[in-house]
Simulated assay, not measured.
Amino acid sequence: METAEREAILAAVPLPMIHIAEDWRLAAANAGGRALVGAAALGRHYGLALRQPALVEAIEAVGRGAAAREVRYAVSPSVAEQVWRVTVAPAPGGGAICSFLDITEQELIGQLRRDFVANVSHELRTPLTALLGFIETLQTTAKDDPVARERFLAIMAREAGRMTRLVKDLLSLSRVEAEERQRPAGSVDLAGLLSGTLSALRPVAEAAGVELELLGGAEPLAIRADADQLTQVFHNLVENAVKYGGSGKRVSVRLERVAVDPGLRGPGVMVQVQDRGEGIDAIHLPRLTERFYRVDAHRSRAQGGTGLGLAIVKHIVNRHRGRLRIESEKGKGSTFTVVLPLA
């Protein structure tokens, strides 16, 4: 194959491609291929640029006359690992042609799916094990002990409630993710929605010794939104603030207009939920909206949390084309800010 013809063919392919000649030199590469192996590798032995055993074995086998084959090739640049599916095929006139398909996202989705299944299994296994243990005890040694029976039944009810909340949150998360690309079409009075949310949670706050206050919600403020989902967002955020904000302290919910928000590139409305609790270490902040991520797993479970609340909040805010910001400092409390666009 003529050099000009080979270069033109490689340049026309959108995937990274390299040509390895019969003498095992990197004879040519398109722009993507050069970015992958480095322009300095051209003209040198391919093993200086491609060092992974599976790929080296495939290239040598194909170069000696074997049929085309596919191998996995992972590289670790400065930011994150990239994974490629490499097709190694015989080249006209000898050698091999390697084409690289980026499957990083597919691998990430697969890993997320496996982690999700493992997390759900773990979250369900604990209450199920407790239920089975107590059922067995009630059927045998505690069968005629009314005091033990009442205590065990109370624990069983709590564990069953935990599983119910988990299933409910899983269904809610699935529904929110399915609707995330569909922007809501309804209109909601955000001031009235926040007032109703605080009224519903006031008994919970009083039981926890926490005072709730709404700042800036005197005037009606209509936005394009799904009322049920926004109620879920602020119910989650305020309930978390009450649970982790510390007894005898105050949780403030502030509502105000924003003339221009950099993230929205236009006017918006900001809702801040602020507690005066012990705060969250900065190392945890980037991961708070991940599914099942907990700062204190034992305390979260004891409070009835499923580890999905902030993941649900994130997806609902995304559906409304808004932004979620989290700020916290140890010993000074936390502030969760939701910014939503105005029509």
Rank of each mutant, 00 (worst) to 15 (best):
D296R: 14
L36E: 06
H122S: 14
A259M: 15
N30A: 12
F336T: 00
S78C: 03
T104K: 08
A207M: 00
Q303E: 15
A11R: 09
P14D: 02
G307L: 11
L198T: 05
D296P: 03
A31T: 11
G186D: 10
I97T: 05
R64N: 12
A118M: 12
V86N: 04
K168E: 15
G161H: 15
Y293G: 10
G333Q: 02
A29N: 10
A311G: 08
S187E: 01
F336A: 01
R25E: 00
E278L: 07
I59V: 09
L194W: 09
P341K: 03
V251T: 07
T231Y: 05
V37Y: 10
V71N: 08
P341V: 00
T104Q: 07
D296E: 15
S195I: 01
I283G: 11
A35P: 07
E213M: 05
G263D: 13
L201Y: 04
T337V: 04
R319I: 00
V210L: 03
A80L: 05
L173I: 14
V88M: 02
S99N: 04
A205Y: 01
I326V: 06
D23L: 11
L132I: 10
P127Q: 06
A8F: 14
V37M: 13
V75M: 11
A282G: 12
I103R: 07
T126K: 11
S199E: 10
Q272R: 08
D275K: 05
R254E: 15
R325H: 02
N30F: 07
L230Y: 05
V238S: 04
L264A: 13
A80Y: 04
R224W: 03
V37I: 14
M163K: 13
T140V: 07
R51K: 11
L101T: 09
I9N: 04
M163F: 13
L138R: 08
L128E: 03
G331M: 05
G277V: 06
D281H: 09
